Amino acid sequence: MKKIKEIIVVEGKSDTLAIKRSVLADTIETNGSEISIDTLNRIKRAHETRGIIVFTDPDFPGKRIREIISEHVPGCKHAYLEKADAIAKGDKGVGVEHASREAIVDALEHVREELLEVEDELISWEDLMAAGLTGGSDSKHRREVIGRELRLGYMNAKQLHKRLNMFRVTPEEFEQALKALYKNEEE
């Protein structure tokens, strides 16, 4: 089993169990989207000593938790799980706890580090428009494919632009993701 040096920040106990069945790692649980100051301070301390990987559910509360942590602890690493990989059998919700070992390991192998300051943008808004990732009837689906290919999760166009530059996705990586998108559309 792979060992992760960073502490993985998850939402709850069930997520911790899913992480521990997949990799050797320590976790901090936020106990949902109402993150206490004490929890944020523990996350900040963990970030300073070992580093952290934010690994929340691919839903609105998970996104909110991610944003709160990034605001209080800049420079985090993030792992994203595809929603399809996090859906419980029998429609019992979406979450890290429902993901397979393989999906969790894959997400943790494709961690992205957010940069504290973005000096210049590598991918412009015009690049997104030219790729049909904003403003079109199929833009949402196209962003889903790009998010999956780049391991950034799903996001709207503004969030995609921000994440592409925050995580320093290179024009070459972006081009590779677009090739996968075009191949997906041909099928």
Rank of each mutant, 00 (worst) to 15 (best):
L40V: 03
H78E: 09
D91L: 08
D15F: 03
T16K: 10
P58F: 04
D127A: 14
S22V: 07
L178E: 10
L178G: 10
S70K: 13
E117T: 13
A25Y: 02
G75A: 04
K63N: 14
R143G: 13
S22D: 09
A88S: 15
E172Y: 11
L150C: 11
E126W: 00
I19C: 04
A131H: 00
L133R: 03
T134I: 11
E109H: 07
K13N: 14
R168L: 11
A79H: 01
E186T: 14
I8H: 07
V54D: 00
T27E: 03
E71T: 08
W125Q: 11
G93D: 14
S36F: 01
R42N: 14
R148S: 15
R142W: 08
H161A: 15
H78Y: 11
I104F: 06
E102Y: 07
D38L: 09
T170L: 10
E114F: 05
I8M: 10
R112M: 09
V145G: 09
D15W: 04
E102A: 13
H161V: 09
T27I: 00
E185H: 03
V9Y: 11
G62D: 03
A131P: 01
H161T: 05
H141W: 11
G132W: 06
D57P: 01
E119A: 09
S33D: 05
D59S: 04
L178V: 08
K183V: 14
R112D: 06
I69F: 02
E186K: 14
L133A: 03
R148H: 13
D127C: 09
R21V: 08
L178H: 03
H47E: 10
R112N: 11
I37E: 14
P61L: 02
M1Q: 12
D59I: 02
R45K: 13
H110M: 02
D38G: 09
A157T: 05
E97S: 11
H110Q: 06
I19F: 01
K183I: 14
F167C: 06
G62M: 01
E82C: 14
T30S: 05
Q176I: 09
E48H: 02
E175M: 13
V54E: 02
N31T: 04
E82P: 13
T49Y: 08
Y80K: 11
E121I: 07
A25F: 03
K83V: 12
L164K: 04
G62I: 01
H141A: 12
E29G: 00
